[in-house]
Amino acid sequence: MPADFLQLEGRRIAVFGVANRKSVAYHIAKQLEEAGAEVVYVVRSPERHESVSKLTGSAQVHVCDVEFQEQIDELTKSLKEKYGVLHGFVHSIAFADYDERGMIPFHETSRKQLLRTFDISCYSLIALSNALKEMLTRDASVVTISISTTRMASENYGFMAPVKAALDSSLAFLAKSFSKFSEVRFNAVAPGLLKTSASAGIPGYVDSYLYAERATLRGRAIKTEEAAAAATFLLSPRSSGITAQQIVVDAGMEVNYFDDRLIRPAVDSLGE
C-alpha cells in the first residue's frame, strides 16, 4: 500500500468549527495535516482565533461567524485572494439556541429558537457551499458532522435533532445542485455520542453517554479520533464514489439496543 494511500498530499482543506483540542474538527484537521494536506482553519470569533491559534502552529486561522452573510462574503474574498482554490471543506458547526429555563418540552420550542438554530447549524452549510463554489476544485469534497440518528427522541437534545435531520437532507440537494457543473461531493459523518466540550453542556449527557457506551457491540464508546478518521477518508480522493451519504460511526450501537446486558438490568429492576 502506498504511503500516500489517501492521496491528500498537497490538497488544501478549509476546516470550520475548531473550538479546542476536544473538537471533532480539531481531530480532523490534525489527521489531514498528518496525511500531508494543508489545513486552513476558520473559527467563529476573535476570541476563538486567539485560543485556536495556539493549537495550529504556523497554519492560518481566519474568523467567520456564519450567522452573518457579510462575514461569509468577507471570508470568501480573503480566501480567494490568499489561496485561489480549495479541495474541500469541513463543516463542523452546531449551535442550539436552548431556552434559558433549560430543556423544555419540544412542542414549546419557539420559532425564534428553532430558526436561529437552523440558520447556524444547517443553513450555514448551504451558504458556505454557495459562497465557496468558485474556489472548489471539480473533484472537491465537502463533509459535515451530523449525529448517528435523528429518529431517537432524546429529550435532553431538544430540537437539535430535527435540525440535524434537515442538515442530512441538504446533502442530497447540494450534491444534485453541484452536479450541474462539477463533481463536488457532499457527505456527513454521523457519530454516536462523543466526549466533546459542546456535549458537556447538554443536561443529562453523561448518563446518555454511559448508556450509549454499553449499547455498542464492543462495549466501548466511540472516540473522537474514530469519527475524524471517517471524515478524513471522505475528504480524500479515495472516497470518490461516495456522495450524498451519511457514514454512521457508532460501533454497532443502532443494532444492539436489545442486548441482554441492557435488557436484564431493566427487567430485574421491575421486581424491586
Rank of each mutant, 00 (worst) to 15 (best):
Met1Trp: 05
Asp4Leu: 03
Phe5Thr: 13
Gln7Cys: 04
Ala14Gln: 09
Phe16Tyr: 11
Ala29Trp: 02
Glu33Ala: 09
Val42Ile: 14
Pro46Met: 10
Glu47Thr: 09
Arg48Leu: 09
His49Asp: 06
Glu50Tyr: 02
Thr56Val: 08
Ala59Leu: 00
Glu74Thr: 14
Ser78Gln: 15
Leu79Lys: 05
Val85Gly: 01
Leu86Lys: 00
His87Glu: 10
Gly88Ala: 01
Phe89Tyr: 12
Ser92Val: 05
Tyr98Trp: 14
Glu100Gln: 13
Gly102Glu: 15
Pro105Cys: 08
His107Asp: 15
Arg111Gly: 06
Gln113Met: 14
Ser121Met: 12
Ser121Ile: 14
Tyr123Arg: 15
Ser124Met: 08
Ile126Arg: 07
Ala127Pro: 03
Ser129Trp: 11
Ser129His: 12
Leu132Phe: 11
Glu134Cys: 06
Met135Ala: 00
Leu136Trp: 03
Arg138Met: 10
Arg138Ala: 08
Ser141Lys: 12
Ser146Arg: 10
Ser148Asn: 15
Met152Arg: 15
Met152Val: 12
Gly158Gln: 14
Pro162Lys: 12
Lys176Val: 03
Ser182His: 09
Ala190Gly: 11
Gly192Pro: 01
Ser197Glu: 12
Ser197Pro: 10
Ala198Gly: 13
Ser199Val: 14
Gly204Asp: 10
Tyr209Glu: 13
Tyr209Thr: 08
Arg214Ser: 03
Ala221Lys: 02
Glu225Asp: 01
Ser236Pro: 00
Arg238Met: 07
Ser240Val: 05
Gly241Val: 01
Gln245Pro: 05
Val249Arg: 05
Asn256Arg: 00
Asp260Met: 00
Leu262Phe: 04
Leu270Ala: 11
Glu272Asn: 13
